[in-house]
Design a protein around this nucleic acid. Structure first.
Ligand SMILES: [Zn+2]
Ligand SMILES: [Zn+2]
Ligand SMILES: [Zn+2]
Ligand SMILES: [Zn+2]
Lengths: 155, 155
DNA sequence: TACGTTATGTTATACTATAACATAACGTAT
DNA sequence: ATACGTTATGTTATAGTATAACATAACGTA
């Protein structure tokens, strides 16, 4: 199920952003990395590593699991992709390294994922950490539920 | 590394709580379920499914992966155990079903995990969900960083 | 005791991810 | 242009996580 009405644009913009990000930071945006990122941006649904492998195997028979996982590692390292731990799946990020942490809304009906990165969440988590004398390094926040479209479809 | 100074008590209390919870709710707290819960409460570190399997295999040669995963499913279903998605590991819960969601602080140095379940987090997440017209069902919040003891040890 | 339900045993397999070592492509300095 | 160090990719093997499907056993009740 695809709710986004202008998704080709989402995808293209994401690739352009990645291209520029890599150029600026002296990183190699190789054909493989581009291909994987395009695949991940096929929709707003998270993508499984082995589905990526299947897809790229169509044109590149030398692809093996490490091919995919290394590429995902690269993309994650620079915030172009995030892993959704509750799904063992990967989702593109539209604003690489704009802020430290990304938070997600995950629809259990259509599988679409959107980011919900608010300063208020960062602030509260900092506060909770401080209260527990805990030094925060990285935070996973994945809110599962029903997106607007899927609620309406139920009605 | 074990920072808790009174942990045998933590473990015993957790088992007692589970015992009572099951009695009250007409659930069978079988020897297997008790054993697995005890193993999980060996420390405040999350435990891997296959480590549980190894442990129970010592005394019960018929144990196989489904033995463990089914038991974990049961314990999770009633809030006696939570899965930490970022670690593929399982941690005991001291207050089964006291509230809907549990949130965690995970020390990347000593691996100890503590819960940080605050109403203020629930409230903010509700607010974020509402803002996005999203109906929340279940939320994963795992804050990774350094616990107090481990920060001090670095100094 | 018979019977339905829940729990566990058993075998097989699916899914997710990394280790370790080899080759190729790239960037830069001579 | 060539040599060389670095980064990326190829390749083989294996480790780690989880579930499907069906069989038997234990439990609770009529
Ligand atoms: Zn889109
Ligand atoms: Zn949806
Ligand atoms: Zn303790
Ligand atoms: Zn610690």
């Amino acid at each position: 199920m695809q709710h986004c009405q202008h998704h080709q644009q989402c995808q293209q913009e994401a690739i352009t952003v990645a291209e520029k990000y890599c150029a600026t930071h002296n990183l190699r945006f190789t054909p493989l990395r581009r291909r994987v990122l395009e695949l991940i941006w096929t929709s707003h649904e998270p993508v499984k590593a082995y589905d990526i492998l299947d897809a790229i195997s169509d044109t590149d028979t030398s692809s093996k699991p490490p091919t995919v996982y290394r590429t995902l590692d690269f993309l994650q390292q620079y915030g172009l992709v995030h892993k959704l731990n509750s799904q063992n799946a990967y989702i593109g990020c539209a604003h690489p390294n704009k802020h430290q942490q990304c938070y997600f809304l995950i629809c259990t009906a259509c599988s679409e994922v959107s980011e919900c990165c608010y300063q208020s969440i960062d602030t509260l988590i900092q506060k909770v950490a401080k209260k527990n004398n805990f030094t925060q390094q990285h935070t996973v926040l994945e809110i599962q539920g029903l997106c607007e479209s899927c609620q309406n479809e139920k009605a």
